[in-house]
């Protein structure tokens, strides 16, 4: 399948990465090579049991054999203090993290 520059640019935007024009061309070549080798995936039979949309289930993580693993219910424990956690924040004010304004001035 062919990847055009617009697709790469849009993907980069989604990934929050900036690429120069040169880097976009290089990324296009690289990804094209990688994706061509992935065409073998189009042969994979998808039965109703293997519905691609069921990707949101944790099927990929759980072992079929129940005795091998399990999921636990989350329990809230304050295992790290706010001061420890925010100690390495690039810009903070007390218990707050400083960021550029999210809403424009005129709003």
């Amino acid at each position: 399948m062919h990847l055009d520059k617009e697709v790469i640019k849009r993907t980069a935007e989604l990934a929050r990465l900036n690429f120069s024009e040169e880097e976009i061309i290089e990324a296009q070549k690289d990804l094209q090579k990688i994706l061509t080798s992935f065409e073998v995936l189009l042969e994979v039979p998808i039965s109703h049991e293997h519905d691609a949309r069921s990707a949101f289930s944790t099927k990929g993580l759980e072992n079929k054999d129940e005795s091998l693993s399990h999921m636990e219910k989350d329990q809230v424990e304050n295992s790290i203090t706010t001061s420890d956690f925010l100690a390495q924040t690039p810009s903070r004010e007390g218990a707050f993290v400083r960021v550029p304004a999210i809403l424009a001035q005129s709003t």
């Binding site: 993907t11 990804l31 995936l41 189009l42 998808i46 691609a52 949309r53 990707a55 099927k59 990929g60």
Partner: peptide, 20 residues
């Protein structure tokens, strides 16, 4: 970039879904 592409709308089923 590759991962974001594989997960993006329009390509999800072809790549990520099939890979699973």
């Amino acid at each position: 970039l590759l991962g974001t592409f594989a997960l993006s709308a329009g390509y999800y089923d072809a790549f990520y879904g099939r890979a699973l």
